[in-house]
Nucleic acid binder design. Sequence first.
DNA 1: TAAGTGATCTCT
DNA 2: GAGATCACTTAA
Length: 181
Amino acid sequence: MKKCKVLDSSFFNRPTVEVARELIGKWLCRRVSESSESFRIRICETEAYDGLEDKACHAHRGKTARNEVMFGPAGHWYVYLCYGMHWMLNAVTGPKDFPAAVLIRGCCSVVGPGRLTKAFSVNRKCDRLEISEKSGLWVEDDNFVVNCDEIFIGPRVGIGYAGPEWEHKPFRFVWKPPMEA
DNA sequence: TAAGTGATCTCT
DNA sequence: GAGATCACTTAA
């Protein structure tokens, strides 16, 4: 197995859209408990939610008990329940007091944000945890390079309420592995 | 295509 | 406290 580097807050403490783009092809890693084995899947779909101005971002109406972690330092998880049954996994990005995060929407073989969190046993207990090996949920980089022309960039999903300006921003990144001959 | 599901937020 | 809303999935 190739040598991997665990990504720390210096990776996440950068512009949100940049982090969303660069998370494509990275490993999302999980170890549920001390005694269990860890496993990992490559991230293939992300979305950026960028600050107070972004009407699609949960933080755009200001700080609340739920989104508080987005206002904190980068390198933490923001996990919340959507539609009463699906947990959404987001990585907090950017400097402290700038509320932004990247939604991890899918991994190779696990398509869809709700299914991803189910596969990784992610729930409320993961909310606000640090993105590190210690917390059992982290990201690794093995220097795998995803070509630009393999990445589809488009508008985010399910945020029509944010209005046309924000709905159409190219904040969604989907990795389409090259077609096999 | 529509129902299921419950936390969260906004307004009384 | 009540009612609307919601970064989705599944079964038809």
